[in-house]
Amino acid sequence: MGVIEVKELVKSYNGVRAVDGVTFSVTEGETFGFLGPNGAGKTTTINILCTLLGFDSGTAFVNGFDCVKEPLKVRSSIGLVFQEVTLDNELTAEENLKFHCYMYNMSRQLANERIDEILGVVGLADKRGTIVKKFSGGMKRRLEIARGLLHRPKVLFLDEPTLGLDPQTRTNVWDFISELKASLGTTIFMTTHYMDEAEACDRIAIIDGGKIIACESPGGLKRSLRGDTIYIKSTDDERAAVELKEKLNLSARKIGSGLSIIVESGEKFIPKIFESMETPILSVSMKRPSLEDVFIHLTGKEIREYQAVAPVRPHR
């Protein structure tokens, strides 16, 4: 039995199924990622697994505990880093961590030991007595991740851990998470809509419209495309698509303002396009398969297309 076991999970809001029959299993020590656009059901799933939210049908087990019947046991065995900052800005770094330790029923001595240790790990030892209000976004993230690990959870949930951070800080946070994983061996369950973050996972579940449409390693997902992606822009996409079908027997997908086709060997195929097609071609580009392509291939949409601007919470 895996560390996380979810079967046929369904959760509706006002008749709309946010999570629609999701089934998956996460094994110990794995980094498992949920990849999908905003509103795909990622956060809803995390909230259910953390017992913050009930569900309509199906089963959910974390560390062998039932999320419905044993919420306290589930909660004491997991750590959680939310999308938004959930630190108390009026308290110091140490006070925030101490609050957490006592909520998890640690003794004063154990709390002090763990706080010393974890502040060193996240590189905030010299900021111990600083009020969190004065922290930068990246420092707050690191402190939150540190807090999530204080009680040595078996699973760490990271809900969009780098949302709203600049690229430099994102990279730092990720380096940090991989180091932690290497040293503590914690199972990580994370959600993201950044492709490069998904690449770092052992396995990815692509989720769209509340359903898991693929679940495999990043390499496996890319191999499933069996070839390179070629993007063609022409003066008349519809005519070009018909031509591709008739003359080269290829079915093209319409993507934004152009067409995409998947062929086995891209370099050899490009000359053929110019040889055989009559529709004026404006541009051709080729890409080795990426997760983005897998996503487009599976959902017919670019993940960016329907990415709303992330709500920015006022931080005080």
């Binding site: 953390c50 913050l52 909660r75 900052v85 630190l87 909520m103 807090r147």
Partner: peptide
């Protein structure tokens, strides 16, 4: 409003 309630709600206390 500022999210801290969630830190309390996921803690293993009633």
């Amino acid at each position: 409003e500022f999210g801290f309630l969630r830190e309390m709600l996921v803690a293993p206390v009633s």
